[in-house]
Amino acid sequence: MAVAVIELAHGTDDLVLIGIQRRGVELAERIAKLIEQQEGVLVPRGALDITLYRDDLQTVGPKPVIGETRLPGDLTGKHAVIVDDVLYTGRTVRAALDELADFGRPKRISLCVLVDRGGRELPIQADVVGKVVKTGPGDVVEVQVAELDGRDQVDVVRGARQ
């Protein structure tokens, strides 16, 4: 995926990796490390919490816990690559696009996800995908990363959600 990101961006100039809280932040960090090994350049990383931009805030019961948002400076003129663990309905990415717009005007925004599980509710597609998994609405895709969960693992649990 790191190679695909470099190809997408035609190198590392102006590249900024932005992980979506929480697993996306760790994945962005890993991609940055792989790019550093290959290119010798440590690209700037940021973290984005999209909770306050969700379109279902008026309906969710207990309020979700808000994570940290930290961006490496003004994004104007940069190529921002949003990194997340799972792409599903596309609503998280929609929120992330809205939020990024409040931090400047990147010359380009791309999307990089570990798992694309289908089931889009918005016209959003990823530019770099680790793996495509066909799932239904009742399935749950759970990504674990070593930094937070102690191991790297992706589980697809069929029929877990009613």
């Binding site: 379109d55 309906t59 969710v60 799972v86 609503r91 089931g119 509710e121 749950v140 990504v143 959600r161």
Partner: peptide
């Protein structure tokens, strides 16, 4: 956070993943 709407919203969009 209207509780009566919370269940309806617990579709895909409310999931963590």
């Amino acid at each position: 956070g209207k509780p009566e709407l919370a269940d309806a919203a617990k579709g895909p969009a409310a999931g963590g993943t």
